[in-house]
Amino acid sequence: MRRALPLALSALLFAPAAGAGEHQLSGYVRGGGQLHLSAARTMGGIGGGVGVRDVWQDRFLFQVDASYLVMLGNVLALRAGAGVQRRGLYSPAVLLVGSALLGDQLTFLLPERASPARGPALSIGLAMAPLRFAVPGAQVSVLELGVLVGLDSPDLALGFSVGLLEIAASF
């Protein structure tokens, strides 16, 4: 048993690449949450959505997704990302992400700010998926953490995202 665990982990880490074609398209569903925080507004919530992803050379990721978030009104979260993944069964990934939140928000007017923030909350940042696994035809990620920055002029905005589950199927 003591030897079995390291062997199993080694098999996961050094498994051959899954889906070795030039471009591999997949669709995915995901659940999680996102928050956009600034001195002008708080926006976001938890929810789920769908996306499409292109994996090029089994290494590079290009993806877009849309999610519906609740808990702070009704919010549409749009994301586009590009990044890299590790080849193999264990395929953690890191992505550069651009995000737009549209819809309801908590709005703040502070003494130094007299007009409300309007329009989509835009931000860019990094997302990391350290617990992501791929087999031919499918991928699953059970944790994705993202940190984003944006501008609610003139205020800086910080964003945080958490993906709790993502299941993808290639086509």
């Binding site: 919530g45 808990m71 702070l72 309801d104 908590l106 709005t107 007017l109 409300p116």
Partner: peptide, 17 residues
């Protein structure tokens, strides 16, 4: 006197508000 305005979304019934 100084004020801070807090505006809840929609009818305010959102859980985080």
């Amino acid at each position: 006197i100084p004020s801070i305005t807090l505006v809840a979304p929609a009818d305010g019934a959102a859980p985080l508000a």
